[in-house]
Simulated scan of single mutants.
Amino acid sequence: MILNIKEIFTAAMVLFAVIDMIGNIPIIIDLRSKVGIIQSERASIVAGIIMIVFLFLGKSILNLIGIDVNSFAVAGSLILFFLALEMILGITLYKEDSTTPNTASVFPLAFPLIAGPGSLTTILSLRAEYETINIVIAIIINIIFMYIVLKTSEKIEKFIGENGISIIRKVFGVILLAISVKLFASNIMGLFN
């Protein structure tokens, strides 16, 4: 277990880009208008637990079904690539189920909006390259940030505005695209060794 500030920062930024809490503010506001109050604490804690449990058990689950971490990381890099394209181009490649929930704290907010396929794949992809403790710290940083965003989503939307949210999504989309290419390049070699 080696604490590495660079790894923590990179993992936190990757998760921040994938989870896209700023870009999800309009969705959060829409959910709040449909279901009333969103329990920010509950949503953040449940999402954090899902991500940390997947960090530790995801590899075992993969081994159980006969998939190595490099293969999963390559697949994850492709998902990140398409998520980045969605963010940059403003298109939707993946459509969520559009049923209206009774409560939005756990479903669809904690899962799959925050701890969804993109973030879970990213966590395992990061595990192929970084120390586990650094990823846990990065997850906790993102949980704290999620909680703050959930608590202040309406104020943030008014302050940043639609154009600001759009610019932030595009910037993080480009960062995510570069990270997905790096992740693909570093793990594709592992498949052939």
Rank of each mutant, 00 (worst) to 15 (best):
E131V: 12
D97G: 14
F111H: 11
V74N: 01
S119H: 11
F54V: 13
V53E: 10
A128H: 04
T122H: 09
A110G: 08
T100H: 12
F72I: 02
S71L: 08
G90C: 02
A84L: 11
L80W: 13
A128Q: 11
L85G: 09
L113E: 11
G118W: 08
G76R: 09
F81G: 15
L93H: 12
I67S: 01
L57E: 04
G90A: 03
F111C: 05
V136Q: 14
M87L: 15
L83C: 06
L93N: 09
I139K: 08
E86K: 13
L62M: 10
I133H: 06
I139H: 03
F82T: 05
L85E: 02
V53Q: 14
A104L: 05
M51T: 15
I52R: 05
L109K: 04
N142G: 03
L57M: 14
F54M: 04
K95H: 11
I137V: 01
I114G: 04
N102D: 10
V53G: 10
F72V: 00
N70E: 14
S60W: 07
V106E: 05
V106D: 05
S60R: 05
I140Y: 09
E86I: 05
N70Q: 13
V74A: 02
G118F: 09
L93W: 03
A128W: 11
N70W: 14
A138N: 07
I67Y: 08
G58L: 01
M87A: 06
T100P: 03
N70T: 10
P112Q: 12
L109A: 14
M51H: 00
D97P: 10
A73L: 06
T132I: 07
S105T: 00
G118M: 03
T122Y: 03
T92H: 06
T132E: 12
G66R: 15
D68I: 12
F111N: 12
I91C: 05
K95C: 15
F72D: 01
K95G: 12
G66T: 11
Y94F: 04
F72M: 06
N102C: 13
T122Q: 02
F54D: 09
N142I: 04
G90Y: 11
E131P: 14
I133G: 08
T92K: 09
Y130V: 14
T132L: 15
T122N: 14
T100Y: 03
L126F: 02
P101L: 06
M87Q: 12
F54K: 13
L78V: 02
I67H: 01
Y130P: 08
I139V: 11
D68C: 10
S77E: 01
G116M: 13
A73I: 04
L85P: 03
R127Q: 02
G76T: 06
F81D: 09
F107N: 00
L55K: 13
L80A: 12
